[in-house]
């Protein structure tokens, strides 16, 4: 085990399996999946490490916020993903704790012509046991529940749909998602 370990041993197979967990949580907001077997230098969780390995590469500028911006993690990302590390405004993906990622108005929300050109926030160190909020919208049969760091930001983000950023929550080996289409109550 060294500071660059924790990547995929068999990238094609492991990324396919991890992607399906990512797909499932994105398609079904509120659902929590586990992603095991991946790790990176502190403070990144194994779930967030897996998300980076599956989705991030040379073509996707990445913003590292707060404690996640440290030399060991930068080196690990350079080795495994090759993503350029950029300011929040230029980021396609952003990784950090919820507190470190704020203020959120720095992140791209897409344009009316290209709403896909919006940032994806990877909120690490998420507390899945915090007070759950009620979720409704695409992917949800009736309503679902998910612990959120706050509600206001997500209500505001939903209000500008189809623009807005999309969020993954990672903590340990657990993963959930809150796409911009979800209504938070």
């Amino acid at each position: 085990m060294n500071e660059l370990s924790g990547g995929f041993a068999d990238p094609a197979i492991e990324s396919a399996i991890a992607f399906r967990a990512i797909l499932k949580v994105t398609a079904r907001p509120g659902r929590v999946e586990t992603l095991t077997g991946h790790s990176g230098p502190a403070p990144i969780s194994s779930a967030a490490a897996a998300v980076l390995l599956v989705l991030v590469d040379r073509t996707t500028p990445l913003h590292l916020a707060g404690d996640h911006d440290n030399p060991a993690l930068r080196q690990w990302i350079a080795f495994h993903c090759g993503a350029p590390v950029v300011a929040a405004e230029e980021a396609v993906f952003a990784l950090g704790s919820w507190a470190a990622l704020t203020p959120l108005d720095r992140f791209a929300i897409g344009t009316p012509e290209y709403p896909d050109r919006a940032a994806t926030l990877i909120v690490d160190g998420h507390d899945f046991d915090a007070k759950p909020a009620e979720l409704r919208g695409p992917g949800i049969k009736g309503k679902a529940k998910l612990a959120l760091p706050e509600r206001k930001a997500f209500i505001a983000n939903r209000a500008r749909f189809p623009l807005g950023w999309d969020t993954f929550f990672c903590g340990g080996d657990r993963l959930a998602a809150l796409p911009r289409s979800t209504e938070v109550r």
């Binding site: 992607f19 990512i22 797909l23 994105t26 398609a27 599956v54 989705l55 996707t60 709403p115 896909d116 919006a118 994806t120 695409p138 992917g139 749909f161 189809p162 999309d166 796409p179 911009r180 289409s181």
Partner: peptide
């Protein structure tokens, strides 16, 4: 995969 996820986020 990134395109699929953005597609799901903006149905």
């Amino acid at each position: 995969r990134r395109a699929i996820l953005k597609g799901l986020a903006v149905p």
